[in-house]
């Protein structure tokens, strides 16, 4: 019997689509699915989770104080507690920004193997598929141990409805408030209303071809018109035109949007490592002989300063 526990992420009081996709993935090979919710359970959440195949919903009953509830070290102890109480032998969570700060903590406390950024996982055999060498390779990995953990890449699997009756339970646990790691503050400010790179359908990215910080606003304006997420090559980040959070590549974000529009980006091996899994790549470059132009779906040879304003004008 494979008892899978799934760490659920919420957004604006709703279960994230990417969490539902992870439930679908787990449901293919697990015997029972337990959703672990950190923010309290409402009827809406219960209905939503049971519609996608969750059998048991656990309220991890974290303390109310936000700086304690949101401390990933506190969350990790709650997940570990639930895993032990409910005898879960598979634990899944998203390989999202929050997940990258939570799942390895759980794995370390349980001394259990963990594979991050899985695009596929078989909970019966304990195998997972993930990228290696910064997106240059795909590897199949065998996990062994009592409890196996999987960090699932957001959007790797699309949610499929599979209604089952679900019961809810509350964990009773005295939250240990750690003294050695205190969360002082969280700042969510600077991306309000902007699409997150990992979840965007369209990404429009700019590189050295934008030439300076002022010009880079062209990428932001275009992104807004296209309802796309703006992104950048490392050069644009190193030059100080955009913050590091926008960097795509080997040492930046790994993205797989439906469409990636690369503007004034040559297509270094490190940049490709972050976006080669895009469904469609459109390259806008004045030089035909660049790697980006050779490895895209649509080559747009020309001056980005002429083409991008035209796109905005015509929309």
């Amino acid at each position: 019997m494979k008892q899978a526990g799934i760490v659920i992420e919420m957004e604006n009081g709703r279960v994230k689509e990417t969490s539902l996709g992870m439930i679908t993935l787990a449901g293919r090979t697990a015997d029972s699915l337990t959703a672990m919710v950190m923010s309290g359970i409402t009827d809406d959440i219960t209905d939503h989770l049971s519609e996608y195949g969750v059998h048991t919903i656990v309220d991890l009953s974290l303390p109310d104080a936000p700086e304690i509830r949101r401390n990933p070290a506190v969350q990790a102890t709650a997940v570990v507690h639930a895993a032990r109480e409910l005898k879960l032998d598979r634990i899944l969570g998203l390989s999202s920004p929050e997940g990258k700060d939570l799942l390895p903590r759980v794995a370390a406390l349980l001394d259990a193997p963990l594979i991050m950024d899985c695009v596929d996982a078989d909970l019966k055999t304990g195998t997972a598929t993930t990228s290696q060498y910064s997106g240059k390779m795909m590897a199949k990995i065998q996990l062994t141990g009592e409890i196996l953990m999987f960090g699932v890449r957001p959007n790797a699997v699309l949610p499929e409805s599979k209604p089952v009756p679900a019961k809810t339970i509350a964990m009773t646990m005295d939250a240990v408030v750690p003294e050695n790691i205190i969360l002082l503050s969280r700042d969510e400010a600077d991306t309000e209303g902007r699409q997150s790179l990992a979840e965007a359908d369209i990404i429009i990215a700019g590189g050295r071809g934008l030439k300076n910080k002022d010009n880079f606003s062209l990428i932001f304006d275009c992104a807004e018109k296209l309802n796309a997420a703006p992104a950048a090559s490392r050069v644009a980040v190193d030059e100080g035109w955009v913050p590091y959070a926008f960097q795509v590549g080997q040492t930046g974000e790994k993205v797989s949007p439906q469409v990636y529009i690369a503007c004034g980006i040559s297509g270094s091996i490190q940049h490709f490592a972050g976006m080669k899994t895009a469904k469609m790549i459109i390259a806008v470059n004045k030089d035909e002989n660049t790697a980006m132009m050779a490895n895209c779906d649509y080559q747009v040879q020309g001056d980005l300063f002429a083409i991008l304003p035209e796109i905005m004008r015509q929309l």
């Binding site: 920004p97 790691i181 002082l184 503050s185 969280r186 700042d187 600077d190 991306t191 913050p243």
Partner: peptide, 8 residues
């Protein structure tokens, strides 16, 4: 990611 930060 996305320019958000946490201070510990």
């Amino acid at each position: 990611a996305g320019g958000r930060t946490r201070t510990y």
